[in-house]
């Protein structure tokens, strides 16, 4: 089960990476980035997850033997932060892409850009 989860999340991440490298369209690259992000987040959550463990919420029943068998709460916190960050990045990127589109009228990074830099 663990192996499957790890593998699937890593595969998701690799799909994202592949998308980033292969795509030319800025929006598609951004989507690929988000896929990569999701993959990585899944990986982190999986790291903290355990089938037998309890929810890491301290309730009244402290006498339970599973008191030491909580799911590690830290990865979840990490993933939460990471998702927020991902949201920020995506927003900024979208705004920039919009600006870029308004300025240049296309959605790909043209190599013609550097030609303004003198003779070449």
């Amino acid at each position: 089960m663990f192996t499957i989860l790890y593998t699937l999340s890593l595969v998701l991440a690799l799909i994202g990476i592949f998308g980033m490298i292969s795509q030319k369209n800025l929006i598609k690259i951004l989507i690929s980035l988000n896929i990569l992000e999701t993959g990585v987040n899944l990986f982190l959550v999986t790291a903290g997850w355990s089938a037998e463990a309890n929810v890491p919420i301290i309730t009244g029943k402290l006498g339970l033997p599973s008191a030491v068998n909580f799911v590690d709460p830290l990865p979840q916190a990490l993933v939460l932060t990471s998702i927020v960050i991902g949201l920020g990045v995506t927003t900024v990127a979208l705004a920039l892409i919009l600006r870029y589109y308004r300025k240049t009228g296309n959605l790909t990074l043209e190599p013609s850009e550097f030609q303004s830099g003198g003779e070449r």
């Binding site: 980035l33 992000e37 990585v40 920039l96 870029y100």
Partner: peptide, 16 residues
């Protein structure tokens, strides 16, 4: 914009 977008994508990839 070009620089920032390149930075975002490279940076996003690297940070992930």
């Amino acid at each position: 914009y070009t620089g920032a977008l390149k930075y975002i994508f490279t940076g996003g990839l690297a940070s992930m």
